[in-house]
Amino acid sequence: EFHLPTMEDLGSGALVDLRAFGLPYEPVVRDRVALGGDLVTFSGGKLLMVPQAGIIVGRRDLIERIRHNPLMRVVRVGRLILAALEATLRLYLHPQRLAEHLPPLAMLTRPAEEVKEQAEALRARLAPMLRGKATVAVEPTVSEIGSGALPLEGVPSWALTLRPHQVSAERLAAALRRHAPPILGRLQDQRLFLDLRTLDQEEMVEIERALRRWKEGELG
């Protein structure tokens, strides 16, 4: 009756149905636009997996009005982000191969058994080094997908766990945070959990360095 434009803030902004990759469902941008809303806004830095940006899609005439609004000179992104966005969107032309080319999606869809093998290999190297200082084990855990996208969802994973013998797990966690770069974990039942789902080999080596420094008293 009043011909008012409608807008939906989708938030995370999935361009494909994540269930195809074994992940929980999140509303797809294309489907929300098809429902008839005039504008849909979503993030480029969450499920779209590009550098931080806000994206608006919808009616061409409204998009043009937004583009010519003086505020656009303040909030528009730079050329580097636009180049990264273009390159990432081209990957979505072949959605069946996304997990091969998008590192965040590759990390989220790693088989849990692969993460477990990585954790076991690291435990085998750390256990002798930390004998008498901490008990090193491999335990199942759940990787949280994110606070903005799928905030309540998780995927099965495996963690390296550390139970120090002479100090609290809290003190061990604080010491590892003093390493450069900081090593961040999760405290649970007097153990420090290090979920390895998103770590590459170079970062695994960094965990070893940090724990060696802790053993030698360099991190307090």
Results as ranks from 00 to 15, higher is better:
L18Y: 11
V115T: 14
M7R: 08
V155Q: 12
G132D: 01
E170Q: 14
L187F: 01
G132S: 03
R123W: 05
A14P: 04
G44V: 02
L187I: 02
H179A: 14
A34V: 03
G13P: 06
L172A: 03
L4S: 11
E120N: 10
F2W: 13
F21I: 10
Y25W: 07
V74S: 07
R177V: 04
R73N: 02
A106L: 04
P182T: 05
K116V: 01
Q166R: 10
V28Q: 15
V155G: 06
T135E: 02
V40T: 01
E114I: 09
A124W: 07
M49A: 13
D31C: 04
V28W: 14
P181C: 05
V50P: 02
E100V: 01
E117M: 02
V115M: 05
W214D: 02
A159N: 14
R67M: 07
V50F: 00
S157T: 13
A134V: 00
A127Y: 01
R171Q: 15
T141R: 02
E208P: 07
H68P: 00
Q188M: 09
A83M: 06
H179K: 10
P181E: 08
V138L: 11
G146W: 01
P70C: 02
V57L: 05
A173W: 00
V205K: 15
A99I: 05
P70F: 01
I207V: 13
V167H: 00
E202V: 02
P111D: 11
G37E: 15
H101N: 12
T41K: 12
A34G: 05
L211D: 07
D38V: 05
T135P: 00
R123N: 09
E218Y: 03
S12W: 02
R197K: 15
K133L: 00
R191T: 05
R178W: 01
E26H: 15
A106D: 07
Q201S: 14
E218L: 14
L85P: 07
H3A: 12
L196G: 10
D61C: 10
E1H: 13
T6S: 15
F2V: 14
K46C: 08
H3N: 13
Y92V: 08
R19E: 14
A149G: 15
I55Q: 06
R30Q: 08
Q52L: 13
G217V: 04
V75T: 08
R131F: 00
A84Y: 05
R97K: 12
S147H: 06
M72L: 02
N69S: 13
S43E: 08
A210H: 13
Q118R: 11
E139K: 15
A121W: 01
L199V: 07
T109C: 09
I145R: 04
A119W: 11
R177T: 07
